[in-house]
Design a binder for these strands. Structure first.
Length: 188
DNA sequence: CTTACGATTCCC
DNA sequence: GGAATCGTAAGG
């Protein structure tokens, strides 16, 4: 039986948590999927991080306790992150892609007529497929209720790393992590 | 109040 | 390559 990670799992540096999240299962109602791609955003000196310019109403949850969802809107889309590190330290991990496991028919209905591998291969695409939006801002991901991330109990020795995507600064930092040979990873 | 700008996606 | 599209943050 898969269980949520405990609080201490999320208390670490985003560069540790991001690869550790690969293989874990994102669950929301009937939909679930294995996390196959993540990105780390650092609490300190990371000009690409939303928290770089300090605490605002939008980024407040990043400064709160770890393991809570940071959902933000960009243009017409939503993205899901997990706040990590201890309270007051705004590190976070962006969930960039999952591989669908259950509720695929539901995802199809929400995503429209797209190829199977395009269902959840992007941060905004997976939010649409899982019906994650701003209402999930701040929700605790360490409980089984509602939106949750469950531990698959496996270790993933072969994690691929490379530059983050979609940003305009610090573009060469190798803070993107994904499972090799995964069809559902974006930009592959 | 006004303005600039996206941690994206989809279509041409 | 370019538009969609609107909340957020910063500045007047």
């Amino acid at each position: 039986m898969k269980e949520p990670f405990d609080r201490t799992f999320y208390e670490r540096d985003p560069r540790e948590v991001a690869p550790a999240l690969l293989g874990a299962v994102l669950v929301h109602g009937p939909t679930s999927g294995m996390i196959v791609e993540t990105e780390a955003y650092l609490a300190e000196r990371d000009p690409a991080a939303h928290a770089f310019r300090g605490k605002t109403p939008r980024t407040a949850v990043l400064f709160g306790p770890p393991g809570h969802a940071y959902v933000y809107r960009t243009r017409a889309h939503h993205c899901l992150n997990v706040a990590v590190q201890e309270e007051g330290v705004p590190g976070c991990v962006l969930i960039r892609a999952v591989a669908p496991v259950t509720g695929i028919a539901t995802m199809r209905r929400r995503r429209g007529d797209v190829p199977e591998r395009r269902l959840t291969d992007g941060p905004a695409k997976l939010c649409q497929a899982f019906a994650i939006d701003i209402r999930h801002y701040g929700v605790d991901l360490t409980t089984r209720d509602g939106l949750a991330i469950l531990d698959d109990g496996a270790r993933h020795a072969t994690v691929q790393t490379g530059p983050r995507v979609g940003i305009s600064v610090a573009t060469t930092w190798p803070l993107r992590y994904w499972l090799p040979a995964e069809r559902h990873v974006a930009h592959l």
